[in-house]
């Protein structure tokens, strides 16, 4: 059996490495660079009921070892994603995790109902933590009761397992994780971006047109590690870890903290071939270190035996 094969609710992954939502579009661009079949899964760009243009530009700003983005959930809308993007992406032998966004409960429920009914979608990722939209988003991700309620409503209609994407912009991440677990979530993905800002010294004004944006990249990795470390000890949900991963060592660190799989975000911009490279390097790392299966590492930083919950045999 492969050292990398991983089973999570709704997902059988050839390997536990997948591009994170928003960094990979719907896969079309990267498919020109490499065969998407090598990926563990694909988290597609957030989909809302209606098409969205998103925020004015500049939408990105560089920061020390990171970047801020304020795209504003630009997407072609549910109908086009169902008709065009999902059928296209289904030509690849890769599980699709559909990121669902909205500004009120009804929006999420509607998108979740429809998109989870697609034969091409294996799981949902509930985007309750986008920092870049004026309404909704943020409250769902920071108020435990609201997050729980939303999760419950989405679970009622979803035909596939639901992973909830947690925001790091909270004072108690464990409380948030437990709330969505109570709401019926099947898994967690964490962390989303941290809210930040940069100011242009020449103009004296924020660089981003939206003023604030979500910080990602290596700069946020320690925050992600800490939060996964805390949450993995307090919930039974599998965790897809993300936040600044760009090397195999980063992946190992996420596993030791308590992750069951990982997603690669910003690193896709600095190196568009990062996902296939990491998949290969991770296998080599495990082999060189005589680790039979990647899941053996999950939670090893806090438990001698590791978590081993999702060991696939």
């Amino acid at each position: 059996m492969s050292r990398l094969e991983t089973k999570l609710p709704g997902l059988t992954l050839k390997n536990p490495i997948m591009p994170a939502s928003g960094c990979f579009g719907f896969g079309r661009e990267f498919s020109q660079l490499y065969d998407l079949d090598v990926l563990g899964a694909i988290m597609i760009k957030a989909t809302t009921e209606e098409p969205r243009y998103g925020n004015p530009t500049p939408r990105v700003a560089e920061t020390p070892a990171g970047m801020l983005n304020a795209i504003g959930l630009q997407n072609p809308g549910l109908e086009k994603v169902m008709e065009r993007e999902l059928p296209w992406l289904s030509q690849y032998n890769v599980p699709i995790i559909a990121n669902v966004a909205g500004s009120q409960v009804e929006d999420y429920v509607e998108v979740a109902r429809t998109i989870s009914g697609s034969p091409h979608v294996q799981a949902l990722e509930l985007n309750i933590s986008c920092p870049n939209v004026k309404t909704g988003g943020i409250a769902f991700g920071t108020v435990p009761e609201t997050a729980k309620h939303l999760t419950k409503k989405v679970k009622e209609v979803s035909e596939v397992p639901v992973y909830v994407k947690l925001s790091p912009n909270v004072s108690n991440i464990v409380e948030m994780a437990k709330a969505v677990e109570d709401g019926g979530a099947d898994g967690l993905t964490m962390i989303n971006t941290l809210l930040g800002m940069r100011i242009d010294l020449k103009t004296g004004k924020p660089i981003l047109a939206n003023r604030t944006g979500g910080l990602s990249g290596p700069a946020i990795k320690p925050v992600a590690i800490r939060m996964i470390y805390e949450v993995s000890q307090q919930t039974n949900l599998p965790i897809i870890g993300m936040g600044g991963i760009s090397t195999v060592e980063d992946i190992i660190e996420f596993y030791l903290a308590g992750a069951d799989a990982v997603a690669i975000g910003t690193a896709n911009f600095s190196n568009p071939y990062i996902c296939p490279e990491l998949i290969k390097e991770l296998d080599e790392y495990l082999s060189a270190n005589q680790i039979d299966h990647i899941s053996e590492l999950t939670g090893r930083s806090w438990s001698k035996d590791g978590k081993r919950t999702y060991y696939c045999s």
């Binding site: 928003g22 960094c23 990979f24 579009g25 079309r28 661009e29 990267f30 020109q32 660079l33 760009k45 098409p51 969205r52 243009y53 998103g54 530009t57 500049p58 939408r59 990105v60 700003a61 970047m67 983005n69 795209i71 630009q74 072609p76 809308g77 896709n268 911009f269 568009p272």
Partner: peptide
């Protein structure tokens, strides 16, 4: 200003003259 440079991240979009405030 760009993120990916290949069309995947939507950092670099602009409106069209046909639809200057739409999607």
């Amino acid at each position: 200003r760009m993120g990916c440079g290949i069309g995947a991240c939507f950092a670099c979009v602009c409106h069209t003259q046909n639809d200057p405030t739409g999607t």
